[in-house]
Structures are given as C-alpha cells and as structure tokens.
C-alpha cells in the first residue's frame, strides 16, 4: 500500500479531528491532501508526536486525537507506548505508517526491516487495542472504528517506502503552531 493512498482513504475520517503528525513525507502528503487548522505537523523532535498527542488527549478528554506516527519516529521513543498504555486515554488513536525506512533522510532501513514488530511491541506494552491494516480500505475501517469506540488504539499500517517529490509545505512552523492552538481553543469553547 502507498501511504498517500492510505492517507487519502482516512482523510474524511480525520479531517475534523485533532491530528498530530510526524515530520517529512507524512506531513507533506497530508498537507497536500488539504491542510486544516486542526492539523499539527511536528517538523522536528522525532519520536514526540505520540507524546504530544497523549498530552492533548489528556488535556481534552472530550475530543478525539489522531497521531500519525512512523516506524523511524516510534523506534526513537519506544517508551511512549508504555506511557500511552499506562494512561490509555480512550480518545487517542495512534496510527503508525511502517515503511521500514528512514525515507525522509536517505531511505536507510529501520529495525522493522530486520524483524522488529511494532504491533507486537505495542501489544506487549499493553496498548489495549492493536490492529494491523494492509489496505487503504482496511485502514479506513480501523480508523473509523477506533474513532467511534472509546479505547486507545494503535494501528500499524505497512506501506511502501515511497514519498512525495517535494516535501515543501507553504506553512511556516510557527504559523502552524499558533493556528493549531487557536483551533483547539475553538473546539474547547463547545465543551
């Protein structure tokens, strides 16, 4: 599966949710599908998108939070799975695109290329719901199900190590940051 097809499939499910993505190809592809003020692209601090998502989910329990992670990022912060599992916010959906590659920085293989099983790690860390998706349709169903349910879910989706031609996004980091904060503020006003 191509990540861009997977993102396109889940876009209708996530477009009105609070979304935090990792840097690089994921951010550029989601941005290109259609930026929303409720999307935050963590363009650095690799590994911390899930920690940010956890902070938002705990702070805004009435709202759904979707984290779009990657294998390289998650491997840099595996402890996040144990911390998320410990608090298990039911409003958090953690999608991991696993292309077995550090695609955005030269395409070097990650440890998932040599057998590390991130879904297995998530299960062993006691994430209450862990699923794997192999097609865009499966992923769409898994994301819709996780958003409709109230259980912390990690969804691992294997994708090809293919990214966009350009990683350019016409959105300065700080503009994204302040716009996102205002979008969350507006959501909180309906609480």
């Amino acid at each position: 599966m191509l990540r861009v097809d997977a993102l396109q499939a889940i876009y209708p499910e996530v477009k009105d949710q609070i979304v935090v993505t990792i840097m690089g190809a994921v951010a550029a592809e989601l941005y290109t599908l259609g930026h929303r003020p409720n999307f935050f692209y963590l363009e650095h601090a690799m590994g911390l998108a899930s920690s940010m998502g956890l902070g938002i989910a705990v702070a805004m329990p009435r709202h759904k939070v979707v984290v779009i992670d990657g294998d390289g990022s998650l491997l840099m912060n595996l402890g996040t799975l144990s911390t998320m599992a410990r608090y298990s916010p039911g409003n958090l959906v953690h999608i991991v695109f696993d292309n077995a590659s550090l695609l955005s920085v030269g395409g070097f293989p990650t440890a998932t290329a040599t057998g590390t099983d991130l879904a297995g790690v998530a299960r062993a860390c006691a994430i209450p719901q862990v699923t794997e998706s192999d097609t865009p349709e499966q992923l769409k169903g898994a994301v819709a199900g996780a958003l409709a349910g109230g259980t912390l879910t990690t969804i691992v989706a294997k994708v090809e190590a293919v990214g966009p031609k350009s990683f350019h996004m016409d959105l300065p980091l700080l503009e994204n940051r302040f716009q996102f904060k205002r979008a969350l503020e507006a959501l909180r006003q309906h609480d």
Binding site: V20, F40, A45, L48, A49, S50, S51, M52, G53, L54, G55, I56, A57, V58, A59, M60, R177, F180, K181, L184, E185, R188
Partner: peptide, 10 residues
C-alpha cells in the same frame, strides 16, 4: 511532548 500538547490544548 506531553507539556507541549497540554499547552496547545490550553
């Protein structure tokens, strides 16, 4: 990351 998320969430 957790504190950054909390701040953005107000």
């Amino acid at each position: 990351g957790i504190s950054a998320g909390a701040h953005l969430a107000g």
